[in-house]
Amino acid sequence: MSPLVHSIVRGVVGLGLFAIVTAGVVGLTHSVTLERIADNRLASQYQALEEVVPASLHDNDLVDDTVTLSAAEELGQEDAFSVWQARQDGNTTAVILPVITHQGYSGDIALLVGIKANGELTGVRVLSHQETPGLGDRIEARKSDWIKQFEGLSLGNPPADQWTVKKNGGSFDAFTGATITPRAVVNAVQDSLEYFATHRQRLLEAPD
């Protein structure tokens, strides 16, 4: 084999080995990254669910205990969706509804709404939104306590005609310069309570 051919072969083999090693490193990094992303996502989900239904109300794993329901226009769910069940000693004590309202100022607002078996709200949290920073984003628990005012409320408390912002004659505060966003959340929470009242038996029954 001539020196030139030998040099070419050695270069090709070297490049091949480099490509194999590089692909292996990239693949391993990708796998580790995906696992980390999945773990972080699961941790975030745990945190959000626990904020909506506190640990004192359940002894089960909220993430794994769900029931699947058909599409619900009232909740902004166009396809089948999952509802989380909080249980103690095998009995459902509360449910967590995933809700999407299309009434936001800048787009959809995704919420988690926790409701006790007796129809009382355990909590509400915002999962995602596109509302104006410094104004509408105060619906986030980390920006203000506004979202926490729903805890303990229910249908009839306040009366049905009071489930809107004070600017419209209701019981709920709005934000200075931002009325549409809080009004959308209030309406969505009321819709959630009405949905629960209508589908209570199905929501509270144990999974098949």
Results as ranks from 00 to 15, higher is better:
P3T: 14
P3C: 09
P3I: 03
P3Y: 01
P3A: 15
P3L: 12
L4N: 13
L4F: 12
L4W: 05
V5Q: 06
V5M: 09
H6D: 12
H6F: 10
H6C: 11
H6T: 15
S7P: 04
S7H: 14
S7C: 06
S7T: 15
I8M: 10
I8E: 04
V9G: 11
V9S: 13
V9W: 10
R10D: 03
G11D: 09
G11A: 14
G11L: 07
G11H: 11
G11I: 11
G11V: 09
G11R: 14
V12G: 09
V12Y: 08
V13L: 15
V13D: 07
V13M: 15
V13F: 13
V13H: 13
V13Y: 03
G14W: 06
G14D: 09
G14T: 11
G14M: 06
G14K: 04
G14F: 05
G14Q: 09
L15I: 15
L15P: 06
L15N: 04
L15R: 07
L15V: 13
G16F: 02
G16P: 08
G16N: 02
G16T: 14
L17C: 15
L17H: 00
A19K: 03
I20Y: 13
I20L: 15
I20F: 13
I20K: 07
I20Q: 12
I20V: 15
V21C: 11
V21K: 02
V21L: 15
T22W: 01
T22V: 09
T22D: 05
T22Q: 07
A23N: 11
A23M: 07
A23R: 04
G24D: 11
G24Y: 07
G24T: 07
G24L: 11
V25R: 02
V25S: 07
V26M: 05
V26Q: 03
V26Y: 01
V26R: 03
V26H: 02
V26S: 05
V26K: 03
G27M: 12
G27P: 06
G27Y: 05
L28T: 13
T29F: 04
H30C: 05
H30V: 14
H30L: 14
H30S: 13
H30F: 11
S31P: 02
V32Y: 04
V32A: 07
T33F: 06
T33A: 11
T33C: 02
T33K: 10
L34V: 08
L34K: 02
L34D: 06
L34C: 03
L34Y: 02
E35D: 10
E35T: 01
R36N: 07
R36I: 02
R36H: 05
I37L: 12
I37C: 01
I37K: 01
I37F: 01
A38I: 00
D39E: 08
D39Q: 05
D39V: 02
D39I: 00
D39T: 01
D39L: 08
N40K: 04
R41T: 01
L42D: 00
L42V: 03
L42I: 03
A43H: 01
A43D: 02
A43F: 01
A43E: 00
A43K: 06
S44A: 12
Q45R: 12
Q45N: 10
Q45A: 09
Q45F: 05
Q45D: 08
Y46F: 06
Y46I: 13
Y46Q: 13
Q47S: 12
Q47F: 00
Q47N: 08
Q47W: 01
Q47M: 04
A48S: 09
A48P: 05
